[in-house]
Amino acid sequence: MSEKNEKKKSSAEDEDVREFKEVMNTLKETVPEIIKGIVDAIYSGTNAEEFGKQVANFYKSMVDVGMDKEEAYELTKKFMESRDISGIIKKILSEGNLENWKSGDVDSEKISSTIKNKVNDELKRETGETNE
């Protein structure tokens, strides 16, 4: 009887060990693959260049219409927060809810109205100068 019990115990242990080995193998293979996937998707050189061009254009367009550099920097920072994919992921993860992020501190209305005001001011100034 005791021999039977020991056999049962041993086979259950073998089963546990086999399962554990599977888990370890999955960890060994999957985790690096996931990290690699994230790196390739987010931090590729092409992405960096594309994003750099977008940010540079945004910043320059605001400086060109006469906006103060610090103000342009603040707006560009917000623009980056709304476009940077790693920032978006980080924000979603830290808040744990995409909906929270959507209604978060990226105030696109404020950004667009500031730009509009600056452009209008600049146009008024230019037309005033031409009339004179």
């Binding site: 790196v39 987010i42 931090y43 050189g45 960096a48 260049e49 994003f51 750099g52 540079a56």
Partner: peptide, 20 residues
């Protein structure tokens, strides 16, 4: 490796800004 790539990403981004 991931950290190194991320740093490289920042470097390319900064250089693109300067180039632009």
């Amino acid at each position: 490796k991931y950290k190194r790539k991320a740093k490289k990403y920042m470097k390319i981004f900064r250089k693109t800004l300067i180039r632009e």
